[in-house]
Design a protein around this nucleic acid. Structure first.
Length: 275
DNA sequence: AAGCGGTCCTGTGTGC
DNA sequence: TGCACACAGGACCGCT
């Protein structure tokens, strides 16, 4: 499940490969993948354009092209975006191939077909509702301890649910939300408006530290994730609670517990993260 | 009006 | 051994 560290790693690895390359042609095998515009228009618009730079916003990848166009990709659960020689074996579930002018390809594959790709003028990025409603970036200067505390106290939602809300904060998913709460020593079912200033400060630092470590370790590969060069991440070896039900806590040896919170598995240490 | 549950999807793991 | 089915979850939509 690509979250902020995974998308950031894809951004960095892919940018090193495709920056400055132009699109020779595009092949689409799953029409519904292309959210905007239509499939034929997508191909026509894309052909001949040059990749200028890549950006990440939350879990969205933004590929800036010549003529003011932006390709916006969301990988959702199992999407992969990989740069490969045209001769490389075709992965199953490859839905989009972009032929590049160095003879290589950028391929999008997605087992569960949840991902989306759009191609819009930069001036129309606001038409993409998910992107438009994203909350602050965790590494933005405007994301401060004071801001977080104010936001927490303006909601009274269960904290885990709030951390997964992309309009609250951009980029956290199920894995990193669990790790952040463990680092901050806060129970995932704590109500956001009940957090103390001290807890909020711990949460603030935990968000930045966990995401930084995730990026430094090139993301988490539990199953499907690979970067723009097809390489798995390493952070799965450093997870403290996520996916570790009934294993001893690394701090206190209490067994990690799994709960269901708003339909998502949530892992935490009942001793370190008591209410 | 915030918050919950259903939906989209397919591969994997479990139980009989 | 083979089958059936629950489960995994990010974002979005509709309902309350």
């Amino acid at each position: 499940m690509p979250e902020l560290p995974e998308v950031e790693t894809i951004k960095r690895t892919l940018e090193a490969r495709i920056k400055g390359l132009s699109v020779v042609s595009a092949e689409i095998f799953l029409p519904k993948l292309i959210r905007m515009p239509g499939v034929e228009e997508f191909k026509a618009l894309l052909t001949g354009r040059k990749f200028l730079s890549l950006e990440r916003r939350g879990k969205y990848l933004l590929l800036r092209l010549s003529h003011g166009l932006v390709m916006v990709i969301h990988l959702r659960m199992t999407g992969r975006l990989v740069y490969l020689p045209a001769s490389a074996d075709m992965a199953p579930h490859t839905h989009l191939i972009i032929n590049l002018d160095d003879g290589c390809q950028m391929r999008y594959s997605d087992i569960r077909r949840f991902g989306t790709v759009s191609l819009v003028p930069a001036s129309e990025l606001d038409k993409l509702s998910g992107l438009r409603s994203l909350g602050k970036e965790p590494f933005d200067r405007e994301f401060t301890r004071g801001y977080l505390l104010k936001q927490l106290h303006s909601h009274r939602v269960i904290l885990k649910t709030l951390l997964l809300d992309q309009s609250f904060i951009a980029g956290l998913g199920n894995i990193y939300a669990d790790e952040v709460l463990f680092r901050a020593r806060i129970h995932p079912q704590q109500r956001s408006n009940m957090l103390t200033q001290r807890q909020s400060a711990r949460l603030f630092h935990a968000i930045r530290e966990v995401l930084t470590e995730g990026i430094e370790n090139r993301g988490t590969t539990l199953r499907d994730y690979v970067d723009g060069e097809g390489m798995a991440g390493n952070y799965q070896n450093l997870l403290k609670v996520h996916n570790r039900e009934n294993q001893p806590c690394s701090v206190c040896s209490t067994n990690i517990v799994r709960l269901r919170i708003s339909g998502r598995s949530t892992y935490f240490c009942p001793y370190c993260q008591r209410m």
